[in-house]
C-alpha cells in the first residue's frame, strides 16, 4: 500500500447477513387445510448493506421477516426451507428455536407495529436492561447505564427520566425508538426492520431512517429493511427485493431496479411513488388488487398486467437475469424500452 492511496475502511469480508434458499410458509387452519403464503423464495443480504424488501401489503414481507428469526408460531405456520443462515449461523431445518441463540445478540428485530411490542407492566428502561443483564451478565446498575446510553443513541429526549416510564406513557414514534434501541442494543451483525416508519409522521419517519442508517454505518450491520415506501428505498437501500403474492418477482441493485426495472409490477410500483410515500396506495398505477393468498397458477401478476399473454396464465415464470436485474417474468421490459 502506497501513501498516496486514500485510507478507505474496507468492509471485512464476512458471511452474508442473511442467506435463505427455498423458504416456504404455509398457514394451517383449524379445519386442517393449508394455505401457502410465502412460496419458495431465495435471497441473500450482504453484510454492511441495506437490502430493501418491497411490495404491496399482504405480499408476505412480515411473514418472511418473522420466519428468518424463527418466531412464527409452529401451531399456526409450517415453515420450510432448503437452507437458512442468519449472521453466518445456520438454522436447523424444522426447528425454529435453533435460531434462539443468535436472537438479540447477532440479529436485531424491529417489529412492524410498536403499539403492543413492549410489556405494559414493566418500565421501559427495565425491559432494555434485561438484555444486558441476561446476555452480558451485567449488574442492574451497569445495565442501566447502558440503557441510558442507548436511549440517547436513539434520540429519546430526557433519557434518564424516560427510562422509568411505562410503555403507555410513550407515543408511537417514541415506542418505535425504544424497539430500535432494543434491536441494536448488543450491536448485532444483522438488523431486520419491518416497516419501521409506517404509522409515524413524516418528520419522525425521516429521523428514524437516518438513525437506522447511522447505526448501520457505526456497527457495519447488514440490514433487511421492509417497506412499501419507495422514497425510503432510494434514500437508504443498496439492493432491492420485490415481493408479490408470496414470491420474489424481481431483485437487483437499487439503481438498476429504479432506473431499468424488468418486471411490469416493479415498473408499476415506481410510477406510483408519489402516492406511495403518503398512503401506501399503489392502486393508482397498477389496476386491480393483489390476489388472495393461496395456491395460484401461472404468473400471479398476470391478471393485473398490462402486457400479459396466454402463457402468463398457465406457466409460472422463474427468476432469471433480464437486463440489469433478475426478474420472474415471461416478457420482461427490455433495456431502453420505457414503460409509460
Amino acid at each position: 500500500m502506497t501513501l498516496a492511496e486514500p485510507m478507505v475502511a474496507r468492509p471485512i469480508t464476512r458471511e452474508p447477513a442473511i442467506a435463505v434458499a427455498g423458504l416456504s410458509i404455509t398457514a394451517r387452519d383449524d379445519a386442517g387445510s393449508s394455505l401457502p403464503l410465502v412460496k419458495d423464495i431465495s435471497f441473500t443480504c450482504n453484510a454492511g448493506e441495506v437490502t430493501a424488501l418491497i411490495g404491496e401489503s399482504g405480499s408476505g414481507k412480515s411473514l418472511t421477516a418473522t420466519a428468518l428469526l424463527g418466531l412464527l408460531d409452529p401451531d399456526v405456520y409450517d415453515v420450510r426451507s432448503h437452507a437458512l443462515s442468519v449472521a453466518g449461523y445456520p438454522a436447523a431445518p424444522h426447528d425454529p428455536e435453533s435460531l434462539a441463540p443468535i436472537r438479540g445478540r447477532k440479529v436485531g428485530y424491529i417489529v412492524q407495529d410498536p403499539g403492543a411490542a413492549l410489556d405494559p407492566t414493566m418500565k421501559v428502561g427495565d425491559q432494555l436492561a434485561e438484555l444486558f443483564m441476561i446476555h452480558r451478565g451485567m449488574s442492574h446498575s451497569d445495565a442501566r447505564r447502558e440503557v441510558i446510553r442507548l436511549l440517547n443513541l436513539v434520540r429519546i429526549p430526557n433519557a434518564t427520566a424516560r427510562a422509568d416510564d411505562y410503555p403507555h406513557q410513550f407515543s408511537g414514534g417514541m415506542k418505535q425508538r425504544v424497539i430500535i434501541a432494543g434491536a441494536v442494543a448488543l450491536s448485532p451483525e444483522v438488523l431486520i426492520a419491518d416497516e419501521p416508519t409506517t404509522a409515524l409522521d413524516v418528520t419522525v419517519q425521516a429521523e428514524i431512517l437516518t438513525l437506522i442508517d447511522d447505526l448501520r454505518n457505526e456497527y457495519a450491520m447488514g440490514v433487511l429493511l421492509i417497506t412499501h415506501d419507495l422514497g425510503v428505498v432510494y434514500q437508504v437501500a443498496d439492493r432491492v427485493l420485490v415481493m408479490y403474492a408470496g414470491r420474489i418477482v424481481e431483485k437487483g441493485e437499487v439503481e438498476a431496479i429504479c432506473s431499468t426495472p424488468a418486471h411490469p409490477y416493479t415498473a408499476g410500483l415506481l410510477v406510483s411513488v408519489p402516492d406511495l410515500s403518503r398512503t401506501g396506495a399503489v392502486s393508482a398505477a397498477i389496476p386491480g388488487s393483489p390476489p388472495r393468498p393461496g395456491l395460484d397458477r401461472g404468473c400471479p401478476f398476470a391478471p393485473r398486467c398490462f402486457q400479459a399473454q396466454s402463457v402468463c396464465a398457465t406457466d409460472l415464470p422463474v427468476l432469471q437475469q433480464s437486463g440489469h436485474t433478475m426478474a420472474a417474468c415471461h416478457f420482461p421490459i427490455s433495456d431502453g424500452v420505457r414503460h409509460g
Binding site: 418473522t66 434462539a100 441463540p101 436472537r103 410489556d119 405494559p120 407492566t121 414493566m122 434491536a183
Partner: peptide, 24 residues
C-alpha cells in the same frame, strides 16, 4: 406481540415466563 419481541431479543423461555408472562 411483546412476548414475541422478548423472544426476538433472545431472552430465555424461563425469564420470559417469569418476568413478562406471569405478571400480565
Amino acid at each position: 406481540p411483546y412476548i414475541t419481541m422478548a423472544r426476538a431479543r433472545g431472552l430465555p423461555r424461563g425469564s420470559i415466563l417469569r418476568r413478562h408472562v406471569i405478571r400480565n
